[in-house]
Design a protein around this nucleic acid. Structure first.
Lengths: 98, 98
DNA sequence: AAAAGTACTTTGTTTTTCAAAGTTAAATAA
DNA sequence: TTATTTAACTTTGAAAAACAAAGTACTTTT
């Protein structure tokens, strides 16, 4: 028998980062504001979790405009997709016995 | 759209408690020692996570003997099964879009 | 009798999480 | 034009969670 939790990715232990990733897997781009509203977070809290994901190079930030209004959006990277998939696979393996 | 992480259970945010539950779903009883070895934890760390699960009434403890040697085992409760299943359902719903 | 195993509890540190307030810059309203 | 609002942060500090290490009590093996 081997340790069932060893293959889980520490970065995705957080429900918030898990939520961000699950949203970015199905949406090419999501704005800071949309993430904030969907996940019901304070600015600071969201910003710091996004920062963790960025440091891991699992997401990318795009500073742009909607009309002439600034708009920051985020997207998942290839590395992010891989890591997230690996995490879900590990999760599934852990609980598949059901 | 609704908050995708709202239905996740806080108790199962922890990888360790997730691991314990996933083991107890498929095994009627597991000893303290087996959990410790499988999950590669120190005594104190495991004990405190088991305590959290016990407080939530998701697991039950059984103090018994193997021969004349003490042996503490743990099992999942009905409430625990329910809660764990609900958590997995929420997780699945969150990532099903894949 | 000494050493080792089981199942903890206690203590204290480190890490993580989070809210609140402050910041900068642009946009809109008065 | 001044004031207010919105977006997207950063900083600060507090609270909570995780964790290792050491201590405890009891038993068993050597």
């Amino acid at each position: 028998m081997k340790n069932p939790i060893a293959d889980l990715n520490k970065v995705f232990d957080s429900r918030i980062r898990l939520g961000v990733m699950s949203m970015l897997v199905v949406n090419d781009e999501i704005s800071f504001n949309d993430l904030k509203q969907m996940l019901e977070l304070t600015d600071g809290n969201l910003a710091s979790h996004l920062n963790t994901l960025e440091q891991s190079e699992f997401i990318k930030v795009h500073k742009g405009f909607i009309g002439r209004k600034t708009s920051t959006t985020y997207s998942i990277t290839d590395l992010g997709k891989q890591a997230f998939k690996a995490h879900l696979d590990a999760l599934e393996k852990m609980i598949k016995k059901l």
